[in-house]
């Protein structure tokens, strides 16, 4: 693995992937283009910069969150854990821009055993077409729910798989992570408790601002783990900006 500390011409040439003519052209365009070029190669890891995994296509829709996520957006595939102490802390609001873009692409969203009834009018208000949603009911056994999650992650037509499961062993998480990698699908797991050493590629925690006077909107999103980041980062986000 090569580490490039700054955008120097010589080091770019060392990669052997860039033609000298390209580099010449970059001279005039400025460092922004070099940034883009470096970002476009996901195999290139830059130690000081956390956004080293290439730009991801799905922006989160929240500028503050984009800023702390590697790749400036949701990963294209893999498993994301969203941890909230209770259901209803804005965990779905966080994903609404993503869901909207996935439905617009014609892909499907599978909801596996959500804790309450999914309320269609709210989805329509958020601009999500309910025709491309499929819900697996809550009373499905855990084994079956995990089976369907794995299957859905392996299927290319499902753009996003949302699941609510609290206690999953490391082995199962690893399996789901692999399934998501093979199917090029993003899976989101909602949990109430954080489990350290989880193999998921990204772990987020949503907490309320601790002051009692905090408004309805304000939440604190902490990025506990993200592939490409060194340390936990957090941001204050107005999650309910649509409401």
């Amino acid at each position: 693995m090569t580490i490039i500390r700054n955008h120097s011409k010589q080091q770019l040439q060392c990669q052997g992937q860039y033609q000298p003519s390209q580099v010449k052209a970059l001279d005039g365009e400025g460092s922004r283009d070099i940034d883009e070029l470096v970002h476009s190669n996901p195999g290139l890891w830059r130690g000081c910069d956390m956004a080293a995994q290439g730009l991801h296509e799905h922006s989160t829709g929240f500028a503050q969150l984009d800023a702390i996520l590697p790749g400036r957006g949701w990963p294209n595939k893999g498993l994301v854990e969203v941890i909230t102490p209770y259901w209803g802390m804005g965990e779905l609001q966080l994903l609404i821009p993503l869901m909207r873009s996935i439905v617009e692409q014609g892909k499907w969203i599978l909801w596996i055993s959500p804790p309450y009834l999914l309320y269609a009018p709210a989805l329509v208000q958020a601009g999500i077409n309910t025709e491309q949603l499929l819900v697996v009911k809550l009373d499905t056994s855990c084994k079956d729910a995990l089976w369907s999650m794995e299957k859905a992650l392996q299927t290319e037509n499902c753009g996003l798989v949302l699941a609510w499961q609290n206690w999953l062993p490391r082995k199962v998480l690893r399996r789901l992570q692999l399934a998501a990698d093979t199917g090029d699908t993003l899976g989101v797991l909602f949990k109430n408790n954080d489990s350290e050493h989880s193999p998921s590629s990204t772990r987020l925690k949503i907490e309320d601002s601790w002051s009692e006077n905090a408004g309805f909107n304000e939440s604190e999103v902490t990025l506990i783990k993200a592939r490409g980041n060194f340390r936990p980062l957090s941001a204050n986000i107005n999650l309910y900006q649509q409401a």
Binding site: L133, V135, V136, T140, S148, C158
Partner: peptide
């Protein structure tokens, strides 16, 4: 392809467990 997947889901979970809203 998607319908095949949904059918597979229904076969495993039972028809009334897969809904859409």
């Amino acid at each position: 392809k998607l319908i095949q997947f949904i059918e597979e889901l229904q076969a495993r979970l039972g028809e009334d467990h897969v809904k859409y809203v």
